[in-house]
Nucleic acid binder design. Structure first.
Lengths: 341, 341
DNA sequence: CTGAAAGCGCTTACAG
DNA sequence: CTGAAAGCGCTTACAG
């Protein structure tokens, strides 16, 4: 492989000059540039990134960190959509993304992560920092690594989805359809920061309709479809009067629908079920899932863009992205049942 | 940040010795090792990976390459599952994964990719090399970069799913249920190598049942749910006699089911629909989707393991992973309709 | 506008 | 078993 020295020799200039031309530093004449560029193409020269990294301190690699608590984060379709947004932005700017998925309960995995952020391999990180008791951004900050959090972490640079509004929109939709007997399927508050905000939003929405939120039955899962089925089962068995279930992600909603159908409930005639996230399959599900679009790709893109600004020495403002209610077929107005007796 | 020199000074040895201890080269005394390790922990030393890369030629980074033809590859749940397998293996071995998603029809994106594989940044690559006319592995081989293909590319190192058997299992299941009027929803053969093998498998399966495969109506989509709906619509409008649809991925199958229900067909009573892949949501879908489990995580893991062997100087044999039929509720035996007239 | 030279932080023969 | 020294391929003040 040809080196920068080879290029310099061929172009008849110094390595310093080649370096400056390649990194577009001022100033050199057009003639020099031409000579250099010709040599570059003739030789098929490609910069040695490790060498460049060592001498410049810049690697053009950013890490995308998706910590996981129990199951691997890779089963979550939302992750892919966020990645998509990050990738789009990084690709354009010539940055590469390194994927890191530390399991926060696993000492070895965590040690790997600590190594990585101290290794001078990374120009910065973007972290989906959702787990309350295990901040992945904190460690990066301590090392002085530029970092952007997707979430509610207390860092200078963060992008958030407006989970509070999302929760409120969801409750307003369901309560607005006349439902009062509403079951909540969430995850434990202390495991997921955005869920805390969604719950607060649900609560605010409930108040508007005179519903006492704390009286609504709630069952927590772990975001998996399976846990959604299980939670739905427990809720419905204990509270047969429920006419609607609000699930705080789409996969649990799909699991809930699956269960409800198995026991003969028809969605939405018998039971309204709504989700959160608007993953790609929410539209294809039958019935189509009413849910909250939390703009996952835009979230990723905003985070990447923010990190690029930080790397450029700017001080970008925090970003909060709006959420949108997407109404499909899994929710319907409450049917007035004939009075009993 | 402390350097290796600092460690050497503190431990009272040379940098060469520290380097050897850290990389576990023979030979040094236990006493030396202790001195060095103590200095390492006292100083909180972490190796500078770019420096190490420059002098050793090893980066401990491998690229995972998912080329995409049209839409971003990131919408495919299968991708995440393959990544999961690769990640599991790499994490254990101390390798980091760089994600690269070149759009093969986009010159700039492709140029980025070419740069990356020539940049000395990568110890090797794993590529999902499914697009017939655009080999992503070829470029890597030319650069002498160790590479493992997931797919049918003609390279020394590859792992494949047994798509032929998968196709055959699917057809055997459907034809075995008595269906003869079967519609096929695929993607164009010249866009996806595994699909060519699945089609061949379908054909072989059909023959066993005396079905002339080429007479079966076929409609191609692009793997998206939406295209599945559209393909189902075209097939069913033109061929109302169809009693089963075989779709070559789960997302198109879900789209097909969605459409079929909208026009009043009941699945599976009225129409059998099967998919391929067994993505996580296939089980939660209603009805549960009959499909082929192509062992995506294992595919990724096998590829990563194979690459590690190549990097260790071995010459691993190609791997072909079996497929499994997963029977759920979307397929049923053909009902004998009352004779006409 | 251009170049000589030092230096980034490691690893690796080589000699002892 | 240990160390001195060269070298990996760039970038960056600095001088001119």
């Amino acid at each position: 492989m040809p080196t920068l020295q080879d290029v310099a020799k061929r172009a008849g200039v110094s390595t310093a000059t080649v370096s400056k031309v390649l990194s577009n530093k001022p100033y050199f004449t057009e003639a020099t540039r031409d000579k250099v560029m010709r040599a570059v193409t003739e030789l098929g020269y490609v910069p040695h990134l490790a060498a460049r990294a060592l001498s410049s301190g810049k690697t053009h690699i950013i890490a995308v960190v998706f910590p996981s608590l129990y199951e691997t984060i890779m089963t979550d379709p939302l992750v892919l959509r966020i990645l998509e947004g990050i990738e789009a932005e990084c690709g354009q700017r010539g940055y590469n993304m390194l994927l890191s998925t530390p399991r926060v309960m696993d000492r070895e995995s965590d040690a790997n992560y600590q190594q990585l952020i101290s290794s001078n391999y990374l120009d910065g990180i973007i972290a989906l920092d959702h787990i309350p008791f295990a901040s992945v951004i904190g460690a990066a900050k301590k090392r002085g690594l530029p970092a952007v959090a997707i979430g509610y972490r207390d860092t200078p640079y963060s992008v958030q989805s407006d989970d509070f509004s999302g929760g409120m929109q969801l409750m307003q939709h369901v309560a607005g359809k006349g439902h009062r007997q509403i079951g909540i399927i969430a995850v434990p508050n202390d495991e997921h920061l955005p869920v805390q905000h969604r719950i607060a939003g649900l609560q605010a929405g409930a108040e508007q309709f005179g519903i006492v939120f704390d009286d609504l039955p709630r069952m927590d899962g772990d975001f998996s479809t399976h846990s959604g089925s299980r939670a739905a089962s427990e809720l419905l068995v204990r509270n047969p009067q429920l006419t609607a279930l609000i699930c705080l992600n789409d996969r649990m909603a799909m699991g809930a629908i699956h269960y409800a159908r198995q026991v003969g409930r028809s969605i939405p005639d018998d039971l309204t079920i709504v989700g959160y996230d608007d993953i790609p399959l929410a539209a294809a599900f039958s019935p189509g899932l009413t849910t909250i679009d939390q703009q996952a790709p835009q979230l990723g893109q905003a985070a990447a863009r923010m990190l690029m600004e930080v790397l450029a020495g700017k001080k970008p403002e925090p970003v909060k992205l709006p959420t949108y209610l997407v109404v499909r077929q899994s929710s319907a107005a409450l049917k007035l049942l004939p009075e009993r007796g």
